[in-house]
């Protein structure tokens, strides 16, 4: 039986998650399983990508100035896809920030500690959430308007071809755990409220928040997945896998930043700078 405060934490986190993330697993599965009247446009080569760029411009890039948009077409496909990735990342980081503020106790933390938790947590959370938009064949993009095939992403030139494959491999293992949005809400909160990020000042305060989330997560999994007693320890292992995934991703982005003519969004620069 769950204590009332734990139950309310589970409910609060689920509500905040549904409120702040425009995409969630339930919605993504509707698109990915074809149970929608407007199926996503499939991007599987250069032609379909160009078509999608015209059709889904706003969903792919938001309100990028029209001047930038026209010069965008002159850039190579890899650079354009890298830009779409960045746009989606910035959007998710913004959503994650709002979600973090809804975690009880987070907003009362020292502002520098809040920054540190986001700096180290957002990419781990982002890749956990990204798995909801993936199946073995590809990735849902542009708010469900598009679907980029895994093969197309693998066919890009190096180093861009190395960008998404590790995320697919993680996603396939993670999706096998069959979490739903109410589980994921607590998992994402647990990623963000992590007491061992470098440079935190009030570790004990963060550990208290973390403890209540982990406790709620354990009880939530027991009640939502009663036939899978090992789910909780398996999920804790995923936290370590995500850390590794982000370390490798950060290295790849630094490499792209150094060797390619691809500018990095200032928010993402802040996150990557002196990360690991």
């Amino acid at each position: 039986s769950q204590k009332p405060d734990t139950k309310s934490l589970v409910r609060q986190m689920h509500e905040a998650y549904l409120k702040h993330f425009h995409m969630n697993k339930a919605k993504a599965r509707v698109f990915l399983t074809g149970k929608t009247s407007t199926p996503p446009f499939v991007i599987h080569d250069m032609d379909t990508l160009q078509h999608a760029e015209r059709k889904l411009h706003t969903q792919l890039l938001g309100n990028v100035a029209s001047g930038d948009a026209s010069s965008l077409q002159e850039r190579e496909v890899e650079a354009r896809l890298f830009l779409f990735c960045q746009y989606a990342s910035v959007e998710t980081v913004t959503e994650l920030t709002e979600f973090a503020k809804a975690v009880p106790g987070f907003a009362a933390l020292d502002l520098n500690d809040q920054v540190t938790l986001l700096k180290y947590g957002v990419y781990e959370a982002l890749f956990a959430l990204l798995a909801s938009c993936m199946n073995k064949d590809g990735l849902l993009v542009a708010r469900g308007g598009g679907f980029i095939t895994r093969e197309f992403l693998k066919s890009l030139r190096k180093p861009f071809s190395d960008m998404m494959e590790p995320k697919f491999q993680f996603a396939m293992r993670f999706n096998a755990l069959e979490l739903d949005d109410s589980d994921l809400a607590l998992f994402v909160a647990a990623i963000i409220c992590c007491g061992d990020r470098p440079g935190l000042s009030d570790v004990s305060h963060i550990e208290r928040i973390q403890e209540s989330i982990i406790h709620a997560l354990r009880l939530q999994l027991l009640s939502n997945h009663p036939d899978n007693a090992l789910l909780f320890p398996k999920l804790l292992q995923k936290l370590a896998d995500l850390r590794q995934l982000v370390t490798e991703h950060a290295e790849l982005v630094q490499e792209i930043n150094k060797t390619e003519d691809a500018s990095l969004h200032p928010l993402l620069q802040e996150i990557y700078r002196d990360m690991y």
Binding site: V90, V93, T94, T97, K101, Q114, V115, E270
Partner: peptide, 20 residues
């Protein structure tokens, strides 16, 4: 603090737009 200007801003103001 200067190193994480945008994160600070996002934490302090809700729904501030961050354009590419």
């Amino acid at each position: 603090k200067e190193k994480h200007k945008i994160l600070h801003r996002l934490l302090q103001n809700s729904s501030s737009p961050v354009d590419l």
